Simulated scan of single mutants.
Amino acid sequence: MTEDGAVDEDLLTIGAFAARARLSPKALRLYDRLGLLTPAYVDETSGYRYYRHSQVERARLVFLLRQLDMPLARIAEVVAEADGVRAADLVAAYWADVEERLAGQRTLAHYLRGRLSGRSSELYAKFEVHTVDVPEQWLITEKRHTLEEELPTWIPASLGRLESAAEECGGTTGAPYVVYHSEVADVSDGPVESCVPIADPEAARAWATENARAWGATARLEPARRLAYTRITKAQVAAPQIHAAFEAVEAWMEGEGLDYAGPCREIYFADWDKAGPEDEVCDVAFPI
């Protein structure tokens, strides 16, 4: 606005600005409502929106980011970032997440096509099943009732706490793993137990006593077991495609006439953060 109440000539009506930005007025009103692109001025009497030409670049950026199906919260992070390199890094990180999700969905779609067409046995054949004898070992653990959608958050958090605590318990002696004591789904909450093998049982018991109330921590001796397992990639870990791996091991056990000797588990032997979607990171296993 100028001092005499007239609209600044530098301002563009929403129609003129939409033409410059190659967007519709409807899209601009949506961006305003979402807080992604606020008009430079809104007339209090008429409600008309006005924009500056300098806002065109931001308007186009918001439009392009929406073409990537980027969530609005992440778009807000990108457009608010003054450092262009940092903004580019945010886009790169988002697209890496998309590619990881698509890799998992590709695996799931392949599995579902085979299952629905009656070719489950062919799908299971791609999972090579082995057995391994695991000696008894002392563990520090956390146990929690949790739904399937909460697992991607809770598992790394709990294993991170346990691996840090293991430094006080003589260090780790094996790969961390997660035990499913009962079904975990969108309506079934386990419980689930995160476990880290450690070297010093006395220190582990002391740690568990201190943390039992905060984290449901325990220290226990896991007996020696024989496991039937199959190795899967990072993309295959995501639910529900991981269920194909579990089913493949169960089918192999049935074919071998073997019984369950305990709850199923996921053993994480690789650095999750450094692994790509097709890198092997986890063994899906059943005690037999």
Score class of each variant (00 low, 15 high):
69 D>G: 01
174 G>S: 10
252 W>S: 01
232 I>S: 01
191 P>L: 05
70 M>C: 07
165 A>T: 04
203 A>Y: 05
109 A>M: 09
25 P>T: 11
112 L>P: 00
125 A>V: 06
271 D>C: 03
283 D>N: 09
217 A>Q: 06
148 E>G: 02
41 Y>I: 01
176 P>Y: 10
166 A>E: 07
8 D>P: 00
117 S>E: 09
205 R>M: 15
259 D>I: 04
104 G>A: 11
51 Y>L: 09
54 S>K: 11
86 R>K: 13
184 V>Y: 04
49 R>M: 05
168 E>I: 00
26 K>D: 08
283 D>V: 00
88 A>F: 06
13 T>M: 04
95 W>D: 10
167 E>D: 09
48 Y>Q: 09
242 I>H: 07
185 A>M: 01
93 A>D: 11
155 I>Y: 03
120 S>Q: 12
209 T>N: 13
169 C>W: 02
4 D>P: 08
134 V>M: 14
140 I>P: 03
39 P>Y: 01
248 A>N: 03
153 T>P: 02
195 C>W: 12
211 N>E: 15
41 Y>Q: 13
251 A>Q: 12
285 A>T: 05
11 L>D: 07
151 L>K: 01
197 P>V: 05
142 E>A: 15
220 R>F: 00
216 G>Q: 05
123 L>W: 14
15 G>N: 10
210 E>K: 14
25 P>V: 11
141 T>R: 11
121 S>Y: 03
127 F>K: 03
251 A>F: 12
74 R>P: 01
265 R>A: 07
90 L>R: 02
216 G>Y: 06
22 R>G: 09
281 V>W: 03
147 L>H: 08
215 W>E: 01
84 G>S: 09
40 A>T: 07
244 A>S: 07
187 V>Q: 14
209 T>E: 15
199 A>N: 07
205 R>F: 06
64 L>Y: 11
229 Y>M: 05
205 R>G: 09
82 A>P: 10
88 A>I: 04
179 V>F: 06
239 A>N: 07
262 G>C: 08
17 F>N: 03
27 A>T: 05
138 W>I: 10
207 W>T: 02
221 L>R: 15
234 K>Y: 03
71 P>R: 10
79 V>T: 08
220 R>V: 02
22 R>D: 14
284 V>M: 08
94 Y>S: 02
4 D>S: 13
267 I>S: 02
80 A>R: 15
111 Y>K: 00
8 D>A: 12
29 R>F: 08
125 A>G: 13
159 L>W: 11
270 A>Y: 01
96 A>V: 06
179 V>R: 03
100 E>N: 10
254 E>D: 12
101 R>M: 07
